[in-house]
């Protein structure tokens, strides 16, 4: 039985794909067999972040429509052998993705012995986002400490609680976690940015990771190397912690306080 984790947010540009790529790599590095699926039909991007864009032959929709087998469409990662990527289709046909088709692919991945399936959701609350979360066991809600992102995340939490297979069947619910990205401890200390505690309090969820704002994220996507593989980077360490917490480990949050205060900040109370 594989565990299906949706990485979602509502708002675009908060780091869903970066997070999907890093969580998938992190789980694979821990020996799990992982597939990561791009649900952003029409706007394929996970392949670029994963660095396998030139190896895409078949995509998610091809599998659903029976143009190829799932095995043919899965792209084996060159760095981690137990990690596979399923690219989104570039079709403009919004109905190409169907609930039955998605279920078929997820069932086949489970039968093939995948431990985890990471579903990289598109932004918004339309069909792609709906199908990305529909069969999920768990959800990682990616949020920036910023008003529109937090509000959209709450909207997504509402959908996770009502518009998923688990919710519709009743009994169990999708297990939800928050993952904060672009966090700036300096700006939090200066009162310019909401803190982890603030976001946690508003949304009422546990926090599975806090990723600091860092230029490393852009350089990683430039290079097509998931940022978690950038050993020595704070971002990589923060994602590594999040992966361990996903696997049930208890780890204290890192990179949430300012390393040290400058002279002026101390003098004037920052």
């Amino acid at each position: 039985m594989s565990e299906i984790i949706v990485v979602t947010s509502g708002k675009g540009g908060v780091g869903k794909t970066t997070t999907s790529a890093s969580l998938a790599c992190g789980l694979a590095r821990k020996g799990k067999k992982v597939a990561v699926i791009d649900f952003d039909i029409g706007l394929r991007n996970l392949d670029l972040v994963m660095g396998c864009e030139r190896r895409v032959v078949y995509d998610f929709v091809n599998v659903i429509q029976g143009d190829c087998t799932l095995k043919q469409a899965l792209i084996r990662d060159k760095r981690l052998e137990n990690l596979s990527v399923l690219a989104a289709s570039q079709t403009r046909d919004k109905d190409a993705l169907t609930s039955e088709g998605v279920k078929k692919v997820l069932d086949e991945l489970a039968a093939d012995g995948f431990d985890y399936v990471i579903c990289d959701s598109p932004a918004g609350i339309e069909k792609g986002a709906h199908l990305a979360m529909y069969y999920a066991d768990r959800a990682v809600v990616v949020v920036n400490p910023e008003v529109s992102s937090v509000r959209d995340s709450d909207r997504i939490l509402g959908l996770l609680a009502s518009k998923t297979a688990k919710a519709e069947a009743g009994g169990s619910r999708v297990q939800e976690h928050l993952l904060l990205t672009r966090y700036s401890p300096r700006r939090v200390a200066a009162g310019e940015m909401m803190s982890v505690e603030d976001v946690k309090e508003i949304l009422g969820l546990d926090v599975i990771g806090v990723i600091p704002e860092s230029p490393d994220v852009l350089s990683a996507s430039n290079a097509g190397t998931p940022v978690i593989l950038n050993d020595g980077s704070d971002v990589a360490a923060a994602y590594e912690d999040a992966v361990s917490r996903l696997l049930g480990e208890q780890r204290p949050l890192r990179f949430v306080t300012e390393p040290r205060k400058g002279f002026f900040a101390r003098m004037f109370g920052g």
Partner: peptide
Amino acid sequence: PSASVAKERLRIIVAQERSQR
């Protein structure tokens, strides 16, 4: 501190939207 303004605004709008959900 603008962060506390953000938090207060969100607290209200999120509560309102949840009650309508």
